[in-house]
Simulated scan of single mutants.
Amino acid sequence: MTASAPASTARTELFSDGVFAIVITLLAVEIHRPEVEPGGLAHALIEGWPGYLAYLLGFLYVGVIWLNHYGLFRHLRGIDRTFNWINLGVLGTTVLMPFATGVLATSFETGNRHDQQSAVVAYALIAGAMSAAWIPVFAYLRRHPELLRSPDVVSVLTAQRVRPLVGVTLFALAALAGWFVHPLIAISVFVVMLVYHAWTSEGIAAIRATPEPQP
């Protein structure tokens, strides 16, 4: 029985971009508007710094994921039903970022050490799940080169598949360090992982390599 031809990526890309846009919007919703007596707004805004930092961290994480997603789809000439499900796994874990960001910000606003430990563990678990969702992406495309624009892309995907494994491992270590040692150690790992994923993002490289449109 002849396999059906891969379907266009257009609808999946549009849907995915919409999900990323909504997630980034929801991150801003997690920055709570202070309710204070007259004259106390400036102090309340300053005290809300954990929410601003958590938003920035979450925004950059989602932005890097979108860049990776963009870079990936530049290599695809089509997708099938299985890959659509894999893509939903990537999106399904990404939409948890506003929840993780809100929990993290609230824990540092209250200043309770146990809450902070719980928050960084929750954040690490969700971030680790986001990394794990990318593992089947590269494995599936390596087995189905017919979905790729060029056979040469397989080597690019092979190089990329180590990145989610690094993410899962280090986020797990961040959860352990944040719970048993200090929550700020976990925060440091989150920042390091953000820099790592941004620095090694194939999507960023793709944007840099895209020629400027001619007038």
Rank of each mutant, 00 (worst) to 15 (best):
11 R>Q: 09
48 G>W: 02
13 E>Y: 02
62 V>H: 02
112 N>F: 08
48 G>A: 15
195 V>R: 13
39 G>S: 11
15 F>L: 14
189 V>K: 00
132 A>Y: 07
128 G>E: 06
170 L>Y: 10
211 P>L: 11
50 P>R: 04
188 S>W: 00
135 I>V: 15
124 A>L: 03
146 E>Q: 12
55 Y>K: 02
105 A>T: 09
66 W>S: 06
188 S>Q: 05
187 I>F: 01
158 T>K: 10
127 A>M: 14
83 F>T: 08
174 A>K: 02
199 W>A: 15
144 H>P: 04
136 P>T: 05
20 F>C: 05
133 A>P: 00
210 T>Q: 13
65 I>A: 13
128 G>Y: 05
177 A>I: 00
69 H>L: 03
114 H>P: 00
117 Q>R: 15
129 A>C: 14
62 V>R: 03
73 F>Y: 15
38 P>W: 04
94 T>C: 12
200 T>Y: 14
176 L>N: 00
5 A>V: 08
129 A>G: 15
167 G>C: 11
192 V>N: 08
5 A>L: 08
69 H>A: 05
23 V>Q: 03
39 G>H: 11
215 P>L: 07
4 S>T: 06
213 P>L: 13
58 G>V: 04
28 A>I: 14
81 R>H: 12
85 W>I: 12
164 P>N: 07
196 Y>G: 08
122 A>K: 01
178 G>E: 01
21 A>Y: 07
172 A>M: 11
98 P>D: 12
168 V>Q: 10
151 P>D: 07
128 G>H: 07
9 T>Q: 02
20 F>A: 09
89 G>Y: 05
54 A>F: 03
60 L>P: 02
148 L>N: 10
130 M>L: 12
168 V>F: 10
136 P>H: 03
23 V>C: 08
171 F>R: 02
147 L>Q: 06
208 R>G: 09
196 Y>Q: 12
27 L>K: 03
40 G>I: 06
34 P>F: 07
97 M>T: 15
165 L>C: 06
160 Q>A: 15
50 P>N: 07
116 Q>W: 02
134 W>N: 05
206 A>D: 15
192 V>L: 15
2 T>A: 04
177 A>F: 02
31 I>F: 09
188 S>C: 13
32 H>L: 13
164 P>G: 09
141 L>P: 02
108 F>L: 12
177 A>M: 12
106 T>Q: 15
118 S>K: 12
178 G>S: 11
165 L>P: 01
213 P>Q: 10
83 F>S: 11
93 T>P: 04
111 G>L: 01
119 A>M: 12
100 A>L: 08
199 W>Q: 12
130 M>Y: 06
128 G>C: 11
8 S>T: 06
164 P>M: 07
215 P>C: 01
45 L>E: 08
101 T>E: 11
10 A>T: 05
57 L>D: 05
49 W>M: 07
170 L>F: 15
178 G>V: 01
71 G>V: 06
53 L>P: 06
176 L>R: 01
187 I>K: 01
116 Q>T: 03
117 Q>V: 03
43 H>I: 02
12 T>N: 10
202 E>R: 13
129 A>F: 15
139 A>G: 04
134 W>T: 07
198 A>W: 15
85 W>P: 00
175 A>E: 00
62 V>Q: 05
108 F>R: 02
122 A>S: 14
185 I>D: 01
123 Y>H: 07
91 L>W: 08
8 S>E: 04
147 L>K: 02
183 P>D: 11
